[in-house]
């Protein structure tokens, strides 16, 4: 079924608005709140991130089981092992420096936080830097690509079983993280 472009864009706008509302309501418009994740006092980022992933994962599994979603037709991000590991570490460092990620920086700017404007400027500068350096990084960028593979193919397990396992791991992680919060919160209080 082909959806006309204007409806897709309208959907994009509504999705974005909801995304922005959710991010702001979770407190991610505030860099100090977000960065508390890395000081163990408020593990919100971990909770939001993983509960979103688990919900979406379970939902996608169920919709594809019911036949309402064709998992062969959806976009699966490619895996580039070394670029994503190294890039992830650099991203983490930048994250602690700024206290924001690209999406939450938008929310932060539009709730008046001026430091987020500096992050915006930095991001544009970083993109230009990347565009300049890209020819030199050609080799590294496409290094160790293993394609649009899914985790269950990688481990050679069944889709549903892996979903279940990840849900269990996530629940255990949430419990653990809650305990860490209580402990560190008590120490800090």
């Amino acid at each position: 079924m082909e959806i006309p472009e204007i409806y897709l864009l309208l959907f994009a706008l509504l999705t974005g608005i909801a995304f922005g509302i959710f991010l702001e309501k979770a407190g991610f418009g505030n860099a100090r709140k977000l960065v508390e994740q890395f000081y163990f006092t408020d593990m919100r980022m971990f909770k939001v991130l993983f509960s979103a992933i688990v919900t979406a994962m379970a939902g996608i599994y169920w919709l594809s089981y019911l036949g309402w979603l064709d998992i062969t037709q959806i976009y699966i991000n490619g895996t580039y092992i070394w670029p994503q590991v190294i890039g992830g570490v650099i991203f983490g460092v930048g994250f602690v420096m700024t206290g924001l990620c690209p999406g939450t920086a938008c929310v932060s700017v539009f709730t008046g936080k001026l430091d987020a404007l500096a992050v915006f400027a930095g991001m544009f500068a970083g993109l230009i830097l990347f565009a300049e350096l890209e020819p030199m990084l050609e080799g590294i960028l496409s290094y160790s690509s293993i394609g649009d593979i899914s985790l269950y193919e990688l481990f050679n397990v069944e889709y549903g079983i892996l979903t279940f396992v990840i849900i269990l791991i996530a629940l255990a992680a949430f419990w653990f993280v809650g305990k860490v919060e209580e402990r560190i919160g008590k120490k800090a209080a």
Binding site: A58, G160, I161, T163
Partner: peptide
């Protein structure tokens, strides 16, 4: 979540 996971499995 656990129920969804069990059914998925």
């Amino acid at each position: 979540a656990i129920l969804a996971g069990i059914f998925a499995a």
